[in-house]
């Protein structure tokens, strides 16, 4: 897969949808193309987050260490981005990501991502917009969940 194809893939990631193709090309160029075999670990829960991954092909599982063992909490497909929270706010990885099939991914390092954001404010605005969307969605879901909890406890 070539740089231009990677740019097309990035374009489909909501976080980058609003960013100009030229900037995405730079982002792709400065990122690493990595391959994983099925079962390889992209990142491990508890490790410091130093990069985000965009899946270019293949599937990956998101797994969380639960009290009763590992629980699969999500399934990642092409164009999915994972690990972006950890690089935006210095927290440890909240989950383990494991390749379910052979996976091709773009590894966007934290420094490069921040560098791009600080150099190109329009990109930052896009990212903020997407994050705010997510936040409001989460807030809605949370309040729904709360009201459901309240209803349940009333019974």
């Amino acid at each position: 897969m070539l740089l231009n194809d990677e740019v097309k893939m990035l374009k489909q990631v909501p976080l980058f949808a609003g960013v100009s193709p030229a900037k995405l090309k730079l982002l792709a160029f400065t990122s690493e193309r990595v391959s994983y075999r099925s079962g390889d670990v992209l990142c491990r829960q508890g490790d410091a987050g130093d990069a985000a991954f965009v899946l270019l092909s293949g599937h990956a599982d998101v797994i969380v260490d639960g009290p009763t063992g590992q629980i699969k909490v999500a399934d990642l497909e092409e164009n999915a981005i994972v690990g972006e929270i950890a690089i935006l706010c210095d927290v440890a990885r909240t989950a383990t990501v494991k390749a379910a099939t052979a996976v091709e991914a773009l590894r966007i390092s934290k420094e490069n991502f921040f560098k791009l954001m600080s150099d190109f404010p329009e990109m930052t605005i896009e990212v903020v917009r997407v994050l705010a969307d997510r936040l409001s969605q989460t807030t809605v879901e949370l309040s729904e969940a709360r009201s459901r909890v309240a209803e349940l406890s009333k019974r």
């Binding site: 740089l3 090309k25 730079l26 160029f29 420094e111 560098k115 150099d119």
Partner: peptide
């Protein structure tokens, strides 16, 4: 052509030039 397209906007001391 590719390099100029990618990098011409960046200041010369930008860390990306290491790439």
């Amino acid at each position: 052509r590719n390099a100029i397209e990618l990098f011409s906007d960046l200041p010369p001391d930008h860390p990306f030039f290491q790439q």
